[in-house]
């Protein structure tokens, strides 16, 4: 424990700004993964235990895209679209077979694919650590906000995630497709009786969730190193986020992700070895107080 470091940091605005931004980027990446997880759970009633693998695919596809074209925008597209395509195939061929079956079976199918995806990445890209490096456009001196160091890339990352959050929120609330998705989450039989292809809705929601995870992976590629199995810790953290925020709630995922991000970044100062532990402790406290999470309505 190193509480002096934490208190010392809280006393200086430079340190607070630096830690808050690093907490925000952890939180925003987690949000992108967790919101896909929560959407898929809300509509398909499936806990996608292999969601972390799509984050990993996103990062690796982005790496390939960046190496081929040298453009970070192409890399982001590669990551998101590649993850979406694999997700769509995965959902249509395998996940669609376990709808309505017991949770154990669904978890097992996903667990099998965690193993298979991780090994496939090892086969294709190799087992060693990979790094994409910061794109040339962002290799500029960092900004200073109230004395704290903020690399411009962090600003991009945070804004992309915020834009996605806003688009998702508005899209689900206002657009026709959004309304259909919410209806399908509520009562799929009725929706399909109205002549709407629910299989397609399920497929597209799953692909959308995977695209978001892939986008998170692509955004993380310049700032984190890549390794097969990198998705797992992200998966566990996004589970914590969804459970804290409430399964199926997008606002919950956002708040949960920001809380976890801040706990991680400030916790790493005060409790360097127990940072993960703080997260689990926080989850336990939230669940004991509110078993359905902060914004969960449905008593699952």
């Amino acid at each position: 424990m190193d509480l002096d470091a934490l208190i010392g940091c809280l006393g200086s605005s430079a340190c607070v700004v630096t830690q808050t931004t690093s907490g925000l980027i952890i939180g925003m990446l987690l949000f992108l993964v967790a919101v896909g997880l929560t959407l898929i759970f809300g509509v398909l009633k499936i806990v996608n235990f292999s969601h972390g693998a799509f984050y990993m695919f996103g990062a690796y596809f982005a790496l390939t895209g960046y190496q081929l074209t040298g453009s970070f925008v192409v890399a982001l597209l590669f990551g998101a679209i590649g993850a979406a395509i694999i997700g769509l195939i995965f959902e249509r061929v395998f996940i669609s077979r376990v709808y309505g079956r017991d949770v154990l079976m669904q978890l097992l199918v996903c667990y099998a694919f965690v193993l298979i995806f991780d090994d496939s990445v090892k086969l294709i890209w190799g087992a060693e650590f990979k790094s994409m490096g910061m794109p040339a456009a962002f290799q500029v001196p960092p900004w200073f906000i109230a004395g704290g160091v903020v690399p411009p890339f962090y600003i991009l990352l945070i804004s992309v995630a915020l834009v996605v959050a806003a688009l998702l929120g508005i899209g689900l609330a206002r657009s026709r497709l959004g309304k259909v998705i919410r209806a399908a989450a509520h009562n799929p039989d009725m929706v399909s009786a109205l002549g709407i292809n629910t299989a397609m809705i399920y497929g597209s929601v799953f692909a959308l969730g995977c695209a978001l995870a892939g986008l998170a992976g692509a955004l993380a590629a310049p700032v984190r190193s890549m390794t097969p199995g990198m998705g797992f810790s992200v998966l566990i953290e996004s589970f914590i986020v969804t459970v804290i925020g409430g399964m199926g709630s997008i606002l919950g995922a956002l708040i949960g992700a920001l809380l976890i991000g801040l706990i991680r970044s400030f916790g790493s100062l005060g409790f360097p070895l127990f940072t993960d532990g703080l997260m689990y402790l926080f989850m336990v406290i939230v669940l004991v107080a509110r078993p359905t999470g902060l914004f969960g309505k449905d008593v699952a």
Partner: peptide, 28 residues
């Protein structure tokens, strides 16, 4: 006492969280 009140998927996750909590206590 904390976990068995919760239903299915929440039970699975909270037990998982306790597992990870104990794991991080062991590590730290």
């Amino acid at each position: 006492a904390i976990c068995v009140r919760l239903k299915e998927i929440y039970f699975a996750f909270v037990t998982l969280a306790f597992q990870m909590l104990i794991h991080s206590v062991i590590l730290s």
